[in-house]
Amino acid sequence: MVRDIDVKLLTDNIKEMCIEATHYLSPDMCAALKTATENEESPLGKQVLDSLSENLEIAGKEMIPICQDTGMAVVFLEIGQDVHFVGGNVVDAVNEGVRRGYVEGYLRKSVVGDPIERINTKDNTPAILHTEIVPGDKVKITVSPKGFGSENKSRIFMLTPADGIEGVKNAILTAVKDAGPNACPPMVVGVGIGGTFEKCAYMAKKALTRDISVASEKAWVADLEKEMLEKINNTGIGPGGLGGRTTALAVNINTYATHIAGLPVAVNICCHVNRHAVREL
């Protein structure tokens, strides 16, 4: 059975989700920050982490965005194959939701219409829209406003099969060390391994939206996530890059099949303001 969904529903929900995501972090992010604060050894690091908790409280209570960089709006739509959109164009509806969310929600407009001409579009559109077709008749929306202090530190490495797992570990550590204080640590590190150039980057981005308290379903990947988190925290970069034991809150890794000649690795760095709102229609 085909299910009709009015695209106005996309607009209304995405508008609210832009505002929600920029003012409240998900429970897993809040919990991880709390645990990190308890365990941090550096006094200055602890002070930074305390400020972050206080910041979250003020943001939610007074409706001031958690961070002034309210990001570029990355929207994932997982569309059931039995869904039939009615009432307009999906892409326009998504952008209209972003426009309303950023204008009505007092969010910063940080998007320029052309990478070289650099004229601000004044409503934070266009969004970055990713769509996937999945079984069923539902639509899962994830809105993930991405800040660029950390986005700028993200990397892609086209490794060769001979580089193997050690090459992968090296790539992740290289990106994190290079990011250092610029990416507002404690970070969340999203990693894609395998696929093609663009698939790999997409997996890294999507990995950031996964609940950080949930490990990968693949045993070797879950082990790698754990090992890399420990290695990253052993760099000593710490909260704000001012030294400490909390450099990352989580490493989330996604993998996919790849070519006999390749081993792509993408590392999407996110700050502690790892924002995502999720809803299902």
């Binding site: 930074v48 400020s51 972050l52 910041n55 003020i58 001031i64 958690i66 002034q68 204080p181 700050c271």
Partner: peptide, 13 residues
């Protein structure tokens, strides 16, 4: 000086 990155609500006070 460094201010705490990502503490924009707190700093706005």
């Amino acid at each position: 000086f460094a201010a705490v990155g990502g503490a924009g609500a707190l700093l706005s006070h």
